[in-house]
Write a protein that binds this DNA or RNA. Structure first.
Lengths: 242, 242
DNA sequence: CCGCATCATATTGTCCGACAATCCGACAGG
DNA sequence: CCTGTCGGATTGTCGGACAATATGATGCGG
């Protein structure tokens, strides 16, 4: 039988405190950049012990809603950075035993759409940045790691050109999971660099021309190339991502 | 000037503790479902105070790496649920001022790929479940909320049929953000239900026939219909998602 | 032997008080 | 304007305490 009653909700104080603060942040009553009251003050206002407040703060901190300025002590209201979100998501994906092929497939699904959106909406500034990123990859991708970072930067620049925060946030975890295997490809497949360079060039061209269809097509080809890369590099597609 | 030195890294104890535990979970030395040692025991092993351990645990708890069984007291190792990940991501998107149109665009980019993957790989069981979900929407979508849930369930079933955990996790936050505006559409656009029903039927058919191209096409049309829905319902596409 | 109520124990949630380290802001001096 | 100094405020960490209750063992009846 389906349960008739919910267990009556009791929430420990540290949870209620963190929810209260979270709610105010989401309602923007606490603005980004604003410093949080001190722990002692919060304890006074919520009428709980400082230890309890601290537990609540740790939750919000790890959710990325609170952070501190470099080397700082006090907490400030922040919005979750791409890195924070990406970290959580890629961690979750790793634990869900996502495989290389799964990540690849997701890229194949998402990136053409991003490229198309970027082509339609890119600003001049974003285009310039995108072109610069592609150029940097072409002329200065000496080390293996520099090359990998360069590829990721290109995807990031493209998502930024699309001016859609959803794309920005979705990109991060996928790229993070892509990187390790991409490093192997670049190590083992000699022609990888030039193929990537060519694809990026074509995509930049399509974005410049505001040709959404071409941008999506080239991106689709670009991502498909990665799959070829996996095969040539002898990477088992069923390998779980780290 | 570009900075010459990194700030030398000091991490408070509660962070080091939480990182230590997190690392062991990610390396699967602590298996999912396994109970964590008690707080006192952890404090003994790490040689820190119990309060410090508790702060570390709160971080892991909110990351979804630790959870407790219903009404339980002890913490268990868990992997982040779709809901946990989706909650964090959609919260981040809200704070990044994502707009309805941004979410829609992301759906437009992702869902056809998911549909195609589902068509290629669906198992009989997944297909049956997908068909059942579509059928349920068709015959029993009385209330506004039931209809909205039904639509989301269909997307979920499709992602499940695609057997790709990445799709599963990406779906959740998008659907969560879609729901409120979808509710408005269903309220205000009389023909919405029948159009959704038709699209879902066509997609099920394509998935059954393992026709990836057709599945992607129908899905693309389906999502494009949502956009029409926004316009007919008079929803400003630039509205920020909740 | 199994299911169920009972009970002692362990564990968590919360509080209090304390103290060292250090960040912060003000202030003075070159 | 930059640098050094200084006192106060704030965080990080600790130890100890206690109530509430989940947990696991125990014993009883079927």
């Amino acid at each position: 039988m389906t349960s008739l009653f919910e267990p009556l909700g009791y929430a420990p104080a540290y949870l209620r405190v963190s929810e209260a603060i979270r709610a105010r942040i989401l309602r923007r009553e606490l603005q980004e950049g604003e410093p949080l009251p001190t722990e002692t003050e919060l304890a006074r206002q919520f009428e709980v012990n400082r230890s309890t407040v601290r537990e609540a703060l740790r939750k919000l901190e790890s959710a990325g809603l609170l952070g501190r300025r470099r080397g700082g002590k006090r907490l400030f209201v922040t919005r979750p950075t791409r890195e924070a979100v990406g970290g959580g998501l890629s961690q979750a994906l790793a634990l869900h035993r996502a495989r290389v092929v799964d990540v690849w497939e997701a890229l194949q699904a998402v990136q053409p759409g991003i490229a198309a959106a970027a082509a339609e909406r890119r600003s001049e500034a974003a285009l310039a940045k995108l072109a610069a990123t592609a150029h940097r990859f072409a002329v200065r991708s000496d080390g293996r790691d520099a090359a990998v970072t360069g590829v990721a930067d290109f995807f990031d620049a493209l998502a930024e050109a699309a001016a859609n925060p959803v794309f920005n946030l979705l990109n991060e975890p996928l790229l993070r999971l892509l990187k390790p295997s991409l490093a192997v490809i670049i190590d083992r497949v000699p022609q990888a660099r030039s193929r990537i360079e060519a694809a990026e060039g074509a995509i930049v061209g399509a974005v410049r021309a505001r040709d959404a269809k071409a941008a999506a097509d080239w991106m689709s080809r670009h991502v498909r190339d990665f799959r070829r890369g996996y095969e040539v590099a002898g990477i088992d597609l069923a390998t779980e991502v780290s």
